[in-house]
Design a protein around this nucleic acid. Structure first.
Length: 430
RNA sequence: CGGGGCGUGGCGCAGCCUGGUAGCGCACUCCCUUGGGGUGGGAGUGGUCGAAGGUUCAAAUCCUUUCGCCCCGACCA
């Protein structure tokens, strides 16, 4: 892709209405544009990141044996009334009426809808257990949307729901999703910590949150520095020492990017959702639900990985992994050479190469490439190119390598595969 | 919802106190210049000042109402 064909603008100046660094950098880098409070356009750059996150989530959910579905965002009030949440969910639930004055909710979550789906679809114990998931826009009338994508009124979420024959089987589903979540966050290059959490409005018997540790996080987690115990602040209460090993607890701020719940029969019971067991008896589903804040992940990743120059995307999230910067100005020949080199790299890494073919000064290209956070920059300067060499800069570390043009794709391939170099797979705890 | 702040070209701001009919920087278009970390110069495009009402010969500026946005708090998959 050529930057001259890419509809994006970067900004040198700080947007006045953005507080947190992820929000500022996404606005400055041309990733998102605000439409209204808590509502954003995803521009081409931002949409690509979103797609990359989604595809990794899909792969890992599928690998875990879950099935993708798509449920309506618009949900009839009757379903919510059946579980009493039409009254209990409160003002955060967007409610609208159709032309016949029938009431609907714009879904902030899908327990009711999916339970309604399952009770028709899953009639026999032979079909169980099953986990269904979707990636979809959710709506919440937040009392105070803020921090850009961190807390919007509309956002993209992956939500999954498991249906099991028993509590034991449900617990197995729950563990399987936990494992899938660790794989997802690991592949995304995020350092996450799983903590015990409150079940809140969703209900159920147990719950864990997946937290990205970041100074700007809205949540606080309490953790033990020497063993694996961790909890969110609500649940930890006044505790000062680890319940497992008595070590003095520490705390840090974090961003909640995932949350899993063991729901038990919280929804299957009021909605009378069940199946026939081997003895022909109607039995209620044991359910679990599992969410990942997909759009929030962009913000969380940036909060965790940036510097004064801008965003530092983990390899898996970057809109393009490689940005080719011909420092050509009006030199048509150099631009053409740059495009040939970009094409060679593209052959080995399809869809991963962006070439900055603008007629801009080197400083502008460097600044924009850093701001947008492309993991690798292939810099084509006149002197080096004369000797058939290019410079490769690693955004994250700042290290630079001078390489012969001939072996470039192979070198990049080796480099990207080098453990620990680009993909930060740090998992602090499980 | 309570407290505070702010709404002036796409973005960042000045002008408002002391009314006289809109200005600067960035971006954008064109020309010249420069060419390894946001080069320098020149010429342009674009706003009626969040909205409504009022005061006045005259309102971005004063008054009233209203809408929106941001921050803090309560709250929260």
């Amino acid at each position: 892709m050529r930057t001259t064909r890419l509809p994006y603008v970067t900004f040198h100046e700080e947007p006045a209405e953005a507080e947190v660094v992820s929000h500022r950098l996404m606005l400055r880098g041309g990733y998102v544009k605000k439409v209204a409070g808590g509502l954003y356009d995803f521009l081409p750059l931002g949409a690509r990141v979103l797609r990359r996150i989604e595809s990794i989530i899909r792969e890992e959910m599928d690998r875990a044996g879950a099935f993708e579905v798509l449920m309506p965002a618009l949900q009839p009030a009757e379903l919510w009334q059946a579980t009493d949440r039409w009254d209990k969910y409160g003002k955060e639930l967007f409610r609208i009426q159709d032309r016949h004055d029938r009431s609907f909710a714009l879904g902030p979550t899908h327990e009711e809808v999916v339970t309604d789906l399952a009770r028709g679809l899953l009639r026999s114990y032979r079909q169980l257990p099953v986990t269904l998931y979707q990636i979809q826009t959710k709506f919440r009338d937040e009392m105070r949307p803020r921090f850009g994508l961190m807390r919007g009124r509309e956002f993209v979420m992956k939500d999954a729901y498991s249906f099991a024959r028993s509590g034991e089987e449900g617990a197995a589903c729950y563990r399987e999703m936990q494992e899938a979540y660790f794989r997802i966050f690991s592949r995304l290059g995020l350092a996450v910590r799983m903590v015990e959490a409150d079940t809140g409005m969703i209900g159920g018997s147990s719950s864990h949150e997946f937290m990205v540790l970041a100074p700007s996080g809205e949540d606080t987690v309490v953790f033990c520095p020497s063993c694996s115990w961790a909890s969110n602040i609500e649940l930890a209460g006044e505790a000062t020492h680890c319940p497992l090993c008595q070590e003095r607890l520490e705390r840090t701020t974090a961003i909640e990017v995932g949350h899993v719940f063991d729901l038990g029969q919280r929804y299957s019971q009021p909605m009378e959702a069940g199946f026939l067991d081997p003895d022909g008896r109607e039995t209620l589903f044991h359910m679990g639900c599992y969410g990942i804040g997909v759009s929030r992940l962009l913000a969380a990743a940036i909060e965790q990985s940036h510097d004064d120059g801008g965003i530092i995307w983990p390899l898996a999230m970057a809109p393009w992994a490689i940005c080719v910067l011909p420092l050509a100005g009006k030199d048509q020949e150099m631009t053409a050479k740059g495009e040939r080199i970009a094409a060679i790299i593209e052959e080995r890494f399809p869809g991963e190469v962006l070439i900055d073919d603008r007629e801009a000064r080197p400083g502008v290209k460097f600044a924009d490439a850093d701001l947008c956070g492309f993991p690798l920059q292939v810099i084509l300067g006149e002197r080096n190119l004369r000797e058939d060499r290019v410079e490769l800069k690693v955004r994250k570390t700042g290290e630079r390598h001078l390489l012969p043009v001939s072996g470039l794709p192979e070198w990049i391939g080796d480099f990207l595969g080098r453990p620990g170099s680009m993909v930060d797979t740090l998992i602090l705890d499980r």
